[in-house]
């Protein structure tokens, strides 16, 4: 099917997210505005105004009632999805690079930037699920990253751990109750920033992408690297597709180098790899800047990508996507019948 081009932003996209039903896409960009779109036709549902700086991150709670955003204006904000009302603003000393709800929607974490003498931190707040209710100012947990700052983070299954990816290529596992560092390991090449961390549906494993041109699937419990996907370009994002055993990777030549190379050189394609066999299956062209984020529909029926070029491209998968199977998968499938 032809992709739907969402051209509502004026500057580079930074993150795109589906809600848990997959009918709405939230997108944030450097142009200070949060947009919500219908995923099936690309119609804009609304915008959320209030931020005073570039936006870095967005997340929606599992019931699609609350929306959290964070940006370069040093605030993390909570919105009512339905009305677009700003519910709460948390102020920080540095910008917010990542927000994420826990799987039950009762907690939210924010990753703060390391800048102007401030160390990078991961902060956690309890969330009141009632949009009318009062939100707390009190941090339930604050993890300070002494060595390398955290760039991405998220809650594991049961909100048992907080997993963070760091700028030096390590991944660490914290106790989500006490904030104690349980384990840390070098997953990607040293000093190659981890650019994204996205969960499998049950959060027992996750995928990380890095500037070292690889993406890796890591087990939540042991931080053991299960799968590795290597490409020829720095990666900005990686997503795990449900239903089919695929992963989608996005990236491209760093934005600052783009003008010096031809579009052909840029490698601005979404790449599909088989999750288990680690082989490339296909690519989707279209963006004319690096892909900053890829997100998959929770029911696995499509995906969308946000690019440095200012566009969101929404794709719905066609039949061949679902039909494609390796010989051994087909064997497995017929054995299970």
């Amino acid at each position: 099917m032809r992709p739907i081009l969402l051209s509502g932003h004026e500057r580079a996209l930074t993150q795109v997210k589906y809600n848990s039903d997959g009918d709405i896409i939230f997108s944030v960009s450097k142009d200070h505005v949060v947009c919500a779109w219908f995923s099936h036709n690309g119609e804009r549902l609304g915008t959320y105004h209030g931020h005073q700086g570039a936006l870095w991150t967005v997340d929606v709670d599992p019931t699609s009632t609350l929306l959290a955003t964070g940006g370069a204006d040093n605030t993390m904000r909570l919105w009512d999805v339905k009305s677009g009302k700003l519910l709460k603003t948390w102020d920080f000393l540095t910008s917010i690079k990542r927000v994420e709800f826990s799987s039950d929607g009762r907690q939210i974490l924010g990753v703060t930037e390391k800048r102007s003498g401030q160390l990078g931190t991961i902060v956690v707040y309890e969330i009141n699920p009632d949009p009318e209710g009062e939100q707390t100012d009190e941090q339930s947990l604050r993890i300070v990253c002494e060595d390398a700052k955290a760039t991405v983070a998220g809650f594991s299954y049961q909100s048992q751990f907080i997993i963070a990816g760091h700028e030096d290529g390590t991944v660490s596992q914290f106790d989500a109750k006490t904030g104690e560092l349980l384990y840390s390991t070098q997953v990607h090449e040293a000093d190659m920033q981890i650019t994204d961390l996205q969960w499998a549906p049950d959060r027992t494993y996750f995928i990380t992408s890095s500037k070292d041109k690889t993406a890796k699937i890591v087990a939540t419990e042991t931080l053991e690297v299960l799968k590795s996907y290597s490409t020829d370009t720095p990666l900005n994002s990686a997503a795990i597709a449900p239903v089919k055993d695929y992963v989608i990777l996005g990236g491209g030549q760093a934005a600052m180098d783009v003008t010096t190379t031809s579009a052909r050189q840029g490698k601005f394609e979404a790449r599909f790899y088989h999750k288990i066999f680690m082989e490339e299956i296909g690519r989707v062209r279209g963006h004319f800047g690096p892909l900053n984020y890829v997100a998959v529909h929770p029911q696995g029926t499509g995906y969308c990508s946000g690019g440095e070029d200012g566009y969101v491209r929404v794709h719905h998968f066609d039949k061949p996507y679902f039909d494609f199977m390796y010989e051994v998968e087909r064997e497995q499938a017929s054995a299970n019948l």
Binding site: P62, Q158, P201
Partner: peptide, 25 residues
Amino acid sequence: LSWRESQIELLKELGAEIELNDGKM
């Protein structure tokens, strides 16, 4: 598949919700 099996087992022990309905919780 066997690794997935072990993880699902683990989640069951913890009493967590399990990946079902085509990935939908």
